[in-house]
């Protein structure tokens, strides 16, 4: 039995960072005993990292369609884990998998999902309070979850994981459940970009509508290379076909939290800011001095990027020797 259940994921043989963040969120809000569902071939070995990260119980699934990441089976597994754990709080993450699995799980449990939360807490009567951006980030809503089970998904990177404590002891048990798969994956095509992954980059250089075409992204790539970073884009630049959709930073794209985010020719619509506003230092270069991005940036240059950027890079080159 547990008070909270984290719907976890495994990446590269270990609990995903979003999963460790979910465990930390449950512990910090004082949920009590925390169970984690870990589906994946490496679940048995990943379980100890989950326990070190704050879990008391780990339910593992090491083979079958749920371990392979089939959404239908993952919903079935999550539902079985909720029943088995008796958890009152169910927390997932707004990852590729969580986006599908968490709402479906919530509806099966007779409730709905508090999705994309930046903060979760408990009020005096033990209700889960979830805070999340709405209206494309133009407003922020806090909701109290009603009913016997609360289901929430956390926006990745919005809370810190706990320091791993390898002395913690927990229980690991395989989860038995019935999977009913109807939507099947026929083919998966990876379009891996070159260089640093956008989500992990310490420096991100992003371009938007103001660049006017695909060619200027070469300059952005050059700058990103100088700084060991990655190139991102606003949705407008992706929709225009200037860069692949995998470059998109924003509400419906990737969430990045680099040390330095340089936005070039991006107006700073809330939709975009939702994906980069947690960057440590945000720098904006935009022709329009009234652009919203200048309300969110730490440093701004209101000017023509075609003149600002080459001089910036030249000076940078000099500084970096």
């Amino acid at each position: 039995m547990a008070d909270a259940l984290i719907i976890g994921e495994i990446t590269d043989g270990a609990p995903a960072s979003a999963t460790l963040e979910g465990i930390a969120a449950a512990r910090r809000m004082g949920a009590g005993q925390v169970a984690v569902l870990l589906p994946g071939a490496d679940a048995a070995s990943a379980a100890s990292a989950a326990i070190a990260g704050g879990a008391d119980i780990v339910y593992t699934i090491v083979d079958g369609p749920a371990a392979d990441g089939e959404f239908d089976a993952l919903v079935d597994a999550a539902q079985a884990a909720v029943t088995l754990s008796g958890a009152r709080y169910v927390i997932g993450a707004k990852t590729l998998t969580g986006r599908d699995v968490m709402p479906r799980l919530a509806f099966r449990l007779g409730t709905a999902l508090a999705s994309d939360c930046s903060v979760v807490s408990l009020d005096d009567s033990g209700r889960l309070i979830a805070t999340r951006p709405v209206y494309g980030g133009n407003a922020e809503a806090s909701v109290a979850c009603l009913g016997s089970v609360a289901v929430a998904s956390l926006r990745p990177k919005s809370v810190d994981a706990l320091e791993p404590d390898t002395s913690r002891i927990g229980e690991v048990s395989p989860l038995a459940f019935e999977a009913n798969v109807r939507t099947r994956v026929l083919e998966r095509v990876e379009e891996a970009g070159e260089g640093v992954r956008l989500e992990n980059a310490r420096v991100v250089v992003s371009g938007g509508r103001g660049l006017g075409g695909p060619e200027p992204f070469d300059s952005l790539r050059e700058l990103a290379n100088m700084l060991g970073g990655a190139v991102g884009a606003s949705r407008a630049a992706c929709d225009a076909g200037w860069v692949p959709s995998g470059y998109q930073v924003g509400l419906t794209g990737k969430t990045v939290t680099p040390d330095l985010y340089i936005a070039v020719g991006i107006s700073g619509a809330s939709q975009h800011m939702a994906g980069c506003s947690n960057s440590r230092t945000l720098v904006a270069i935009n022709k329009d001095a009234g652009a919203n991005i200048f309300k969110e940036a730490r440093f701004g240059v209101a000017g023509d990027w075609q003149k600002v950027l080459p001089a910036f890079m030249e000076q940078l080159h000099e500084l970096m020797g």
Partner: peptide, 13 residues
């Protein structure tokens, strides 16, 4: 199903 949430607050961030 009965309502899942109660809106506690809505504000500009």
């Amino acid at each position: 199903a009965s309502p899942a949430f109660e809106l506690v607050s809505l504000k500009k961030p």
